[in-house]
Every structure is written in structure tokens, then in C-alpha cells.
Design a protein around this nucleic acid. Structure first.
Lengths: 190, 190, 190, 190
DNA sequence: GATGAATGAGCGTTCATTCAT
DNA sequence: AATGAATGAACGCTCATTCAT
């Protein structure tokens, strides 16, 4: 019966947090975030109990956005390589298209503010990805490693590729391909 | 500005910074660093003009330590694979043997506090590494890429490997090998 | 301003205030009080214009409860000592039976939030008590003092006794008696 | 070798705290205290680690001042009544001469901010007082009560007397005497 | 050179109260 | 009447840096 919480305000806060964290790091103050979001300092805390809660929710939102992007048109019937390439393309595209969000995800990934529970939640929905890595690992050079190793390998190469492209945007395509080739060889070769 | 009187104090400050940054992140206060180092708050600023200067000098020291470690017994005459493996072993070994220093390097690498100038300086002395990567790139899958791409690839896989081992220490050897295999395949395959 | 619709809500707010002030002091937030009372933050302010008003009304309610308790079965015909003892017993019993309410009364008594007007109102209805003190003061050691002095004396000894018993509950009876004896001697002796 | 901590500043902070707590209660902000003391907000915390520490130290200072006052010229050889009256006079005089300090002591006495340890420390040095009460309790109406009861009784009557005088200053002497008479009768009579 | 007291802006968070719903 | 979102000043405390000693 009272004024309902406004999703617009919540989104404005999250958007402001993305922008400012990308610019200034995780230590941006809640008051700056509130100001950029156009809400009062107090309001920020009616939408997020603490700064830490804000960061955790932000992490989940971003992860979920990446996932939605990725699985929407997932070519479940395609060849293994095509599916792997699909994952690669979606993730790298996201990193390049949304550099602020990408920066924030990577900063949050290594932050102490993200709780174990949040990390666990953030992995849900990536079963397709895990399945691909497992298939890839069935044969090939890394067949004796746990597939978590493959996931880490994939992630680290995608991130490297995104960052490389960010620094050399004029030749994005070629590094995009080269990164995938490196991954594919790493996992399937020799 | 003049060379400070006591290198011991300078080193104590750097050592304290390493320990505390590894534990608590880059936001540790200078006063905590001074206390752990056993010097006064004021003295810290006679050895390092600002906190940012301290972080930049720390970054250079650590990078330089890694490099010294690496090039000391570099097997210049060995095979390409043996030299590549040597680099791999030295870097990964360092990351595992000195987890605090490794954590600090990775935190500083992505920090806004490190100036471009510092980053440039920190790359000096890695010519041997660059040469290896260039040789590796002469043939193989990535022969059309700039060797900086190869360096980034190598670094990202080494870091991934170190972190994976840090989380699964009981099977260090196997991931150590697997990481190198992945790199070798990535660059030379298929 | 108009008589609020639901006396139940008003009472729930007062009860919550008693509980929380006893636990956490006068600085409890109105929002905590509202939550414990099961009403909305806004509703609290339709029942009490401000927090200060809430505290003042609470003070009057509690004082009035004490008085009701006391005068209900007042033995108007008994001896002076019996009547004095009756007052003593009722007050001390109240303090021990309702420690939360007692704590709140004493906290409010010394609080800046209670207005002079409230204090004056809170004294109404204690005529019987005043009469006893006046009788007591007719003869005895304090016969030249205003009876307000006697009232203050009585109150201070009752409070002291209640607090002493609260800290040494296993010997309540003995301190209960001793307190009254002290008062009786103080006023009638030597 | 650095600038030494200045006792003047510490005292200024304590004095400001006394004045402001007497006026506004224990909830005065540290920043108001700092402002009145003429030091920066930060400096307050170099003299007192937390607000709670400030309150505890203030309590000890005030208790110690009362004690010094009391025991300085203590008439150890005088009669029991003379010694009791001496204690009475010193305490009441202090309460009347220093109403701010008196208010602060009584507020702190019942505050949650004062730690058990502080309370224990604050009782040291009052052996003479305890001895008097014990002597008084050897005979008389309260001879079966623990002397802590007598101490509480004495304290409560002194406080009542001080407060009564504060509200009726023109007849201070008479209430001063009457209070002591009440106490003496309470303990020795009938 | 060494020390640590001094500073005041800034931090994350809470609060009593208002007012749109 | 009831709700709870909105507000921004205020809170206790920390910080990097300066400077008197």
C-alpha cells in the first residue's frame, strides 16, 4: 500500500556502481554511487542492505546477464568445436561490447567482498559450458585433468583475449581467432 | 629524495607491505604497514614519498625479483622446449614458493595505482623470454600474431596454473605439467 | 490528533518500547519499536506524533500503572506503619515483578525527553502517599522538613532496594525488609 | 622525539565532555566534544581510542577526583559519627560544587558504556568508606545485612540530598543536615 | 633523520520524520 | 488509516599526509 520499491532506482544504483567501479575500483564510496544514480545516500541502503550486499547482488546480476547472453541461442546440436567456439564468441563479444561490466566482473571475481554463497550461485546455469569442457577433455592432451582445470583454462584465455583486444582494438578479429585457436590446440593437441 | 640512510628500514617497509597487502588487500593503511615494519608513521614517508610511490616501487622490486630468479641459471643453449619449460618452471615455482609476493604482484598488476611508466619499467629485462616466444611463434598455429600476444598467453596460463595449484595443492605436479602442456600445444599445435 | 482507531496498536507500540528500551536504552530507533510492535514505521507516527511524545506518553502510562496498582487495595484504615509498609510493598513488588517497566521508568525519570509538564502530570494521584509522608513527618526526626523531602527519601530508598534485590535476588526478602526498616528509622527515629 | 601528547588537550577533551554530557546526555557526539575542546575530530581519537574509552576514562577521572577530595583530610581519629558526617559532607559538597561533574558521574554509573573492569577500578581507594559502613553496621538496625547494602543506602541518600538541594538551593543547609540525620537514624536506630 | 601528534575530509551506516501510494 | 520508500544530516571512526619536536 506504500510506495513500492522502484526497479528503476535499483537499476540506476547498479548502473552507477558499474560505471564508477570500472573507473575507480571497488573502493568507490556508496555516496558517489548514490549521487551518480540520482538517489539519496539513504535510499541506496533501502535497496541494498550494505555495500557488500550491493557488490554481491551486482556480481550475480552481471553473471546472469552473461549467461543469458550465452545460452539464448546456444547451438546444442552443433559440433563440439562449433559449440566451443560459440561459447568463446559470446563471452569475448560480451567483454568487448561491455567493457565496464567486464571490468567489474573481473574485479569482483577476485574480491574478498564476494561471499562463497554468491560464488556458488553465480555458477548455476553454466552446465552447458561444463559439458563442453568435459567432452573436450574426454580425449586429447588434458584427458586426465579434472574438467575444472579446463574451465579455468578457457576462462583465462578468454580474459586474456578480451584484454588484448581492449589494448589493440584495431585488430580485434585476428586476436579473437588466435585466442580460440590457442585454446583449441591447448585442449585437443597435439 | 636523497638516498635514504637505512636500506634495512626500506626493506622492512616493503616486507610489511607485502605481508599486509597479501592479507588485507591494497587498501591497508600506511600506518599499519609502518607498525608491522617497526618504523614510525612518519618514517614511512621519508622512504616513500606517498603511498602510491610505495606501491609502484614495491611492484618494481617484486618484478625484478622474479626476473632475477628466472635469468640466473637460464639454459641459453638448451632446446626451445627446454627453455620454454625453464621459464614456466621458474615462474610457477616462484608463485607457489612465495604466495604473498605472488598475490601482491597480481593485485598490483590490475591496480590503478601503478603508473604506465612503472609498467614499462617492469618489462625491462625480459628479453630472453621475448626471444623464446618469438622463436615459438616462428612456426605453428600462431605464427602470424605479434609476439606480445604470445607473452600474454604464456603469462595468463602461468597465472591460471599457479592459482589452480594454490587451490589444489595436493596435486601440484600434475597441474604444473598440464599447464605447460596446454601452453605448448596452444603455441605449437596442431 | 483524533483518537486513533486501534488501541491494540497503540498498546503494542508501548509494549514494544518497554521491551526494547529495557534491553537497549532510550536510544532504540522508532523503526525497531515499530517492527517489534508489528506495525509499520509510519503507523507509529500516527499513534505518537514524535518519538519524544511516545516517551512522554509511555512515562505517564507506566506511572499510572504503578499508581493503580498501589491504590487499588489501599488500607486506608490501617495504622500509619501498616500504610507506609503497604506503599513500600506495592512499589517494591512492582519493581521486582516488572523489571522492564521499572527500568524504563527510571531511565525516563532522568531523561531530557520528559517534559516538565509530563513530570507534573505524573505526580497526580499520589495524594495518599503524600498524606502518609505528611503524617510521618508530623513528629520524628524530620518534622521540620517539607514533605516533598520525605517523598524523595522514600522513593530513593525504594529504588535502591529494588536495585539491590535485582542484583541479589536470592535474598530478596531480607533486603526488602531491611530497606523498609531503614526508611522507618530514618523518618521516625531516633 | 615527536610532539608529545599534550595533557592540556586531554583535559580539554575531558572538560568538554563533562560540560556537554551534563547538558545533553551521554549521546553527545564526539565531534561536538572535539569542537568544544578546541581540537580536531581526529585528535580526540588520538587521546581516546573510542568514545567508549573516553567515557570510561572520564568515569575514572571523576571518581578519582571525588576520592581525592574525600580522603585528603580524612579525620581518621574522630568518632564514628564524625567520620560518617565527614564522608557525607565531602560527597554532598562535591555534588553541589560541581553539578556538571556530579551529573556525569551519575549518568555514567548507570550506563552500559562503563565496563565491569572500570567499575572495579573505580571502587579502589574507598576502603575508609567501607570501613565506616562496616562499623556502623556492627550494631543497630541493619546489623545482619551485608555492608554493601549500607553503602548503597548511603549513596542513594547522598544522591537524593544533592538532587533535592539542586532543586531547592536556597535551603541547602537544612536538607544537607536532614539527609544526614535520615541516614544516621536509618542505620543506628531505633 | 626519526617520531608520532595533528588534521579534516571521507567512509559506511542509521535515524526520525515525511509523504506518495 | 496504513504502509514503507525517501531523505540527508549526523554518527563514530579511519586515513594519508604534514610538521613540531
Amino acid at each position: 500500500m506504500a510506495r513500492p520499491k522502484s526497479p528503476e532506482k535499483r537499476n540506476a544504483i547498479l548502473a552507477a556502481a558499474i560505471q564508477l567501479i570500472a573507473e575507480q575500483g571497488l573502493s568507490v564510496s556508496t555516496s558517489k554511487i548514490a549521487k551518480v544514480a540520482g538517489v539519496s545516500e539513504g535510499s541506496l541502503f533501502t535497496y541494498f542492505e550494505t555495500k557488500e550486499a550491493l557488490l554481491n547482488e551486482l556480481y550475480l546480476e552481471l553473471k546472469s546477464e552473461v549467461r543469458a547472453n550465452m545460452l539464448d541461442t546456444y547451438p546444442a546440436q552443433a559440433s563440439l568445436e562449433a559449440r566451443a567456439r560459440y561459447i568463446w564468441d559470446m563471452y569475448v563479444r560480451f567483454g568487448i561490447a561491455h567493457p565496464d561490466k567486464y571490468k567489474v566482473i573481473t574485479q569482483l571475481s577476485v574480491s574478498d567482498s564476494i561471499q562463497e554463497q554468491t560464488r556458488r550461485l553465480s555458477m548455476e546455469g553454466y552446465e552447458a559450458l561444463h559439458a563442453i569442457v568435459q567432452e573436450l577433455f574426454a580425449y586429447g592432451a588434458l584427458k586426465d585433468q579434472p574438467y575444472a582445470f579446463g574451465t579455468a583454462l578457457l576462462l583465462s584465455l578468454m580474459n586474456m583475449t578480451i584484454e588484448f583486444i581492449a589494448h589493440h582494438p584495431s585488430e580485434a578479429d585476428r586476436f579473437w581467432d588466435a585466442g580460440f585457436t590457442a585454446f583449441w590446440n591447448a585442449v585437443t593437441g597435439p
